[in-house]
Amino acid sequence: MSNIKIHSLADVQTDLIGEGTTIWQFSVVLKQAKIGANCNINALTLIENDVVIGDNVTVKSGVQIWDGLRIENNVFIGPNVTFTNDFTPRSKQRPSEFLKTTVRNYASIGANATIVGGISIGEYALIGAGSVVTRDIPAHALVYGNPAKHCGWVCECGSKLEDFSCSSCNLEYEIINNTIIKKDT
């Protein structure tokens, strides 16, 4: 017995949906899209064919997830986030291949952010609301602005780090080879 919930006013054409996922009204999901378990796809969303969404993902209202997007597990996508997948769009002209964009595990993207195609957003990264992201974002990075600039680091719990320490959960981090990692304690 399936515990997938699809609102009667949603147009869901795919069968590739994991257990415990909910898709709300006025959402459109195309036939080849893959959506993991325990996801919450809010109202007024569009998910195209060449899309893979992992487990425990939240997609808030007003988001379109275009061909070429890969969203890993435990990702939060805020309301009205805009993704792109073509650097040179033209009416009635389809590119031979769409740009590939990856949002890594546990990343969070704030409301109304714009994510330019062909980039990767690292694990646990936090994109501020309204940001325009034009390049790869490293793991645990806090970025915001237009264009988005690196403004600090965030903990696994989502809190901003001060001197590579989290005052919320007491985890500590260090940078080794330009990568932020959790210290062994």
Rank of each mutant, 00 (worst) to 15 (best):
M1H: 14
S2D: 10
I6Q: 08
L9G: 07
A10D: 11
T14K: 06
G18K: 07
T22P: 00
W24I: 00
V28R: 09
L30N: 15
I35L: 11
A37F: 04
N38P: 10
C39V: 10
L44S: 12
L46R: 12
L46E: 12
I47T: 08
I47E: 04
I53D: 02
I53P: 05
D55A: 12
N56H: 15
V59G: 05
K60I: 04
S61A: 15
S61C: 13
G62E: 07
D67L: 06
G68Q: 04
N73A: 10
N74T: 07
N80I: 06
V81K: 07
F83I: 04
S91L: 13
S91K: 13
Q93E: 14
R94T: 14
E97S: 12
E97F: 03
T102C: 05
T102W: 05
R104V: 01
R104M: 10
N105F: 07
N105L: 01
A107D: 05
I109S: 06
N112I: 01
G118D: 08
I119H: 06
I119S: 04
I121S: 03
G122M: 05
G122R: 00
Y124K: 08
L126V: 12
L126Q: 11
A129Y: 09
A129R: 10
V132Q: 00
I137P: 02
I137H: 02
A139Y: 05
A139H: 09
Y144L: 09
K149Y: 02
H150C: 04
H150G: 00
G152L: 07
C155S: 12
C157M: 09
S159V: 06
D163Q: 14
C166P: 02
S167L: 13
L171C: 13
Y173F: 14
E174L: 11
E174T: 14
I181C: 13
K182V: 06
D184N: 13
